[in-house]
């Protein structure tokens, strides 16, 4: 799979991961990122995914993926067993995002966390002028059927990082499939990718 065909946040993460490293992809979907890392960077990639059809697809393409839930199944991975733990567009669907990130940082030396920024100006406008929960390109579901149960903004996430004393090794912001400026990211970024360590 090429970078062009991959979701922009995944393509960005794929470029940052070290050659030959060990990666746990939490919420790996059908394994697109894992396959790209394996084929392009000789990464030893393992996955955790909640949806059985996705797991079957990933195993069918030769990847090592375990069906499980980020909220409950990360506890079974030993400390420091991976170079990177990756949580892409899954944070906002977990019951306790803070505890999940804590687990990522226990399992991996570093953790990539990507999420849609709920404070993007389109969403703000929607709430301010429409008085309705935003339904946008990045957040296409209505409030009652969305899987996103913990909406989060760039500044919310930075506050959590500060509160827990984690350090930020890198941060990237996306608008569409293009990287965008750090300035006013909380207003202008549709997507954020953080690289953290404990």
């Amino acid at each position: 799979m090429t970078d062009e065909a991959m979701r922009p946040d995944l393509a960005l993460i794929a470029r940052m991961v070290r050659q030959g490293s060990r990666v746990l992809d939490v919420g790996c979907g059908d394994g697109a990122l894992m396959a790209a890392l394996r084929d392009a960077r000789q990464v030893d990639a393992r996955g955790l995914e909640i949806d059985p059809a996705n797991v079957a697809s990933a195993v069918g393409r030769g990847l090592s993926v375990v069906q499980g839930d980020a909220d409950t199944d990360l506890a079974y991975y030993p400390d420091g067993s991976f170079d990177y733990a990756i949580l892409s567009q899954t944070l906002q669907t977990t019951r306790r995002p803070d505890l999940v990130v804590e687990e990522l940082l226990r399992i991996g030396s570093q953790a990539f966390v990507s999420f849609p920024n709920f404070a993007h100006w389109r969403g703000r406008m929607s709430l301010l002028w429409g008085g309705r929960m935003p339904v946008t390109r990045l957040l296409p579901d209505t409030w009652y059927d969305t899987l996103n149960i913990h909406h989060v903004t760039v500044d919310d996430f930075r506050a959590l990082v500060k509160d827990r004393g984690w350090s930020i090794d890198g941060q990237w912001f996306l608008k569409g499939d293009k990287e965008t400026t750090h300035a006013n990211a909380n207003l202008f970024a549709e997507h954020a990718v953080f690289l953290l360590r404990r």
Binding site: R46, P52, V55, A58, V59, V65, V66, Q67, G68, D73
Partner: peptide, 21 residues
């Protein structure tokens, strides 16, 4: 099956697991 998978994960074994319908 999950008991098996958790033990494999704990040992760092290369493991896949899926519950099919």
């Amino acid at each position: 099956s999950r008991v098996i998978v958790h033990a494999l994960n704990a040992g760092g074994a290369e493991a896949s697991f899926v519950e099919l319908s």
